[in-house]
Simulated assay, not measured.
Amino acid sequence: MIGQDYPDAPWSDQDGIFPGANDSHDELLPLEPPQGPSTRPHLRERLLTLSDLATMHGVEPLVDGLLYRDTLAQLSGPPGSYKSFVTLGISCAVASGQNWEGHHVPKAGTVVYVAAEGASGLLVRILAWCELTGVDPRELEKRLFVLPTPIQLGNVVDVSDAVDLVSEVDAELLVLDTRARCTIGLEENSATEQGRAISNLERIQQAAGCTVLVVHHSPKNGAGGRGSSAWDGQVWSDLRLTGGDGVVKIHCEKHKDAPDGCEHHYRLVPHTVSESRMQGATETQRKSLVVVQRDPLDNSPADRPTTRTVLDVLRTCAGHEGLSRSEIRDLAMERGVSKSSAYESINDLVNRGALRNIGSDARPKYVLAPAFMEGS
């Protein structure tokens, strides 16, 4: 039975979006699938004519520009580059059918997020995303499932269970975070062992016709995924992420049959989840980050972190009534910006047309200009 009951969860009447899982694992078994009666059609029955090829549809986007339906993708990046924040934001967007930071999401679908390094801290990230994007968490009920244990791709039982799982929930997206935790016992640099792991993952993918996104670490001072290059060659989409200091860039190294070579820029916005969403949690426990599309101004101000903080203040606090200069200053100072830097950023934003005065000349009240409200 998918899902458990959490009667005290404040965001749901029906409750329970996160299924539990047994953290224990069976001993690693041979990588080959279990033997049984063969239902595989003969190769002659799988031949295609030109007319057959003409009836085949091209690949369809799951998250336009990043992920495509029924394909295998890898997102690799160094430790601390916000990979999990990116993948969790994408997962929430797919589960709710919301566009994700400049990328079109054609429709909502079920997501299975394998938190192989543990599910602690995911709830606050999900709720922060919901509040910042205006999505009711109930929209994620029965669409976003978190598996707080790895699917071991070298374990026949795990692979068989995963085939059943994605089929049962009719998954559109399966996220493995991280690949290393889902390939324990397999030699990371062995093309043979990693190739068999890829084959088992493709069995899982084919069971539901879902997109599979594998999160992996990149080597120090290197690009692509760490270890064997078998994954780089087999994946349909090879996404390479770099990030730090609140800024993220994804380079689309490869899409097999879609435009690639493009780059997408994002940043992280701090957000504190409301007490009503996380009753009994401290303010520190309610703090998180949310990935948003990077602002047009981010390439120009001299003091980018300060300017981003002021922009965040306007996005989250200005509402329809706007904020005075002193109110913007005080809220920015609460977030660690000095008084002088706050005023400098406010003046810079006003001069650039990023802030619109909805008050009077004598008592100005500022809101963000429409061109700078994306990602709010």
Rank of each mutant, 00 (worst) to 15 (best):
V291C: 10
G243H: 03
P7I: 05
T71W: 02
K254D: 01
K142Q: 15
R138F: 06
G154V: 08
K365P: 03
Q194D: 10
P34V: 09
Q194E: 14
Y6W: 12
G97T: 05
H42P: 00
K220H: 03
M333L: 07
V114P: 01
Q206G: 13
S91D: 01
V114M: 00
L186I: 10
G322A: 06
E45D: 15
L53H: 10
G209L: 07
M56L: 15
I17W: 12
D232K: 11
S326D: 13
A9Q: 13
N221H: 08
K365H: 13
A162C: 06
H25A: 11
G20N: 08
L323A: 02
P150D: 05
A95T: 06
R356D: 14
D348S: 13
G222I: 01
G118R: 02
M56Y: 11
L323T: 05
C210T: 10
K220R: 10
P305K: 03
L297K: 03
G89A: 05
V156R: 15
G243R: 01
T306W: 02
D298T: 14
S300I: 08
T133W: 10
L144T: 07
V94E: 01
R40H: 05
R335L: 10
G118E: 09
E283G: 12
L29P: 00
S338I: 02
G121S: 04
S288L: 10
T39P: 00
A119K: 09
L127F: 11
E141L: 14
A95N: 02
S229Q: 05
N347D: 15
E117Y: 01
P33I: 10
V159C: 11
G118M: 01
E187Q: 15
G246F: 03
P41E: 03
L31S: 10
R138V: 12
L48F: 10
G97E: 04
K249Q: 07
V290E: 08
N351V: 08
G65M: 03
G89V: 04
V214T: 12
V124L: 08
D70A: 11
I126C: 02
R286D: 05
V350E: 13
A162E: 02
R308Y: 11
V292R: 05
V247S: 12
Q98C: 08
S345M: 14
D164P: 00
S324C: 08
D257L: 10
S338L: 07
H265W: 15
R44P: 02
A354S: 14
I2W: 07
V156L: 09
A332N: 09
D26N: 13
S360F: 09
L239Q: 09
R240C: 04
I346W: 02
S274Q: 13
K254C: 08
Y68V: 12
G154W: 05
V215L: 04
P19Y: 06
A302V: 15
R277E: 12
D26T: 11
I17T: 12
V135F: 00
L62P: 00
G359A: 04
L50Y: 07
A93I: 00
D260P: 05
I250D: 02
T71K: 03
G89I: 03
K339W: 12
L297A: 07
V86C: 01
G359Q: 09
